[in-house]
Design a protein around this nucleic acid. Structure first.
Lengths: 169, 169
DNA sequence: TTTAAATAGTTGACAAATATAACTAATATA
DNA sequence: TATATTAGTTATATTTGTCAACTATTTAAA
């Protein structure tokens, strides 16, 4: 049952479909873990252990109010801790626990394994171009006017009701 | 406030972040329309007017139960109609109304305009490679085991509870 | 040719994600 | 010092996605 073969769809839609399949495969790979969501946050922490919540939000394009719940969930699972930064007590450092570190290794491995598999029949050159263009498209999108999810603008002087920007459909 | 600069994230995560931004920009472009969701379904219908619900599901990787609500929403807005196929009365043809056709032109224009803008500083060669690789990655993902969202397998002999495959994080 | 299986679509209950405003606390700036 | 900004939290409402069970119809098998 193939999907998205020869069809002419906008690049944002294509990317969304790809990422949905990607996360479907990922969650199958990791279905034995007790944590069943937010793998990309753990992946990010593997390389950015001890960063702040806001830093995760900025890099993964998640709203800070949503991030609170993500962090709560991962703390409850015993994967991470939340520590106040003594030098700026507004900030909370997010650090992997021993348990979290262990499972995050498996998660990182699963991500990398999927990447290896799906890039297996693509040349290094084309892969590099793909990644470069994907990053460029993202940064080009950043300078276009958007509804302001992901950015924690101050909420003053808000006039109109917002529309959902859920990356679905 | 830049995001996703030099970071090392898996390709599925990168694609998700890009698509989130993409839809944020799109919804800003189209905020004057009364319909504020499901633009990609209308885009798809612009080229596949009269197809079945299942056909949309297959191509946009959306579960059929979710599609029912999408179609209901667009019917309520007066953009589409749902007509039973007389030759196979299980199938419902989805057709754009006059009103839907008119607004869908604007939606298609908005998608194309965004694509034009974000690819403006990327060569034709690199763009072609990007699109080709994106399609290839998607099809490579299809042959990997995944949790079976998007696919309407028969639900018999189901043993374990499913995990969410929401393309979020 | 009757029975079984598969397909297209629907429903309803529930879980998860998102939007939004209002809030505390801490720090930076004018 | 007063003001604004930043990091994070809470609460509420809405939207969206999940999933099992369902109807109706068509196809395939015995």
């Amino acid at each position: 049952m193939q999907v998205t073969e020869k069809m002419n769809v906008p690049v944002g839609t294509k990317a969304l479909i790809m990422s949905k399949r990607y996360y479907g495969v990922l969650s199958k790979c990791l279905e034995d873990l007790e944590v069943e969501r937010y793998y990309s946050v753990l992946y990010f922490l593997a390389e950015n252990d001890g960063c702040t919540q806001q830093h995760i939000c900025n890099n993964l394009a998640v709203d800070k109010t949503a991030m609170v719940k993500v962090i709560d969930y991962l703390i409850k699972a015993g994967y991470i801790d939340r520590n106040v930064n003594p030098d700026d007590r507004r900030e909370h450092f997010i650090v992997l626990t021993k348990k979290g570190t262990k499972h995050t290794e498996e998660i990182v491995g699963a991500f990398k394994s999927i990447d290896d598999k799906i890039f297996a029949d693509i040349s290094k050159t084309e892969k590099d171009i793909f990644i470069k263009v994907l990053c460029r498209l993202t940064s080009n999108l950043e300078i276009l006017p958007a509804n302001d999810l992901f950015f924690n603008y101050k909420k003053t002087a808000r006039k109109k009701k917002k529309k959902s920007n859920v990356a679905k459909l």
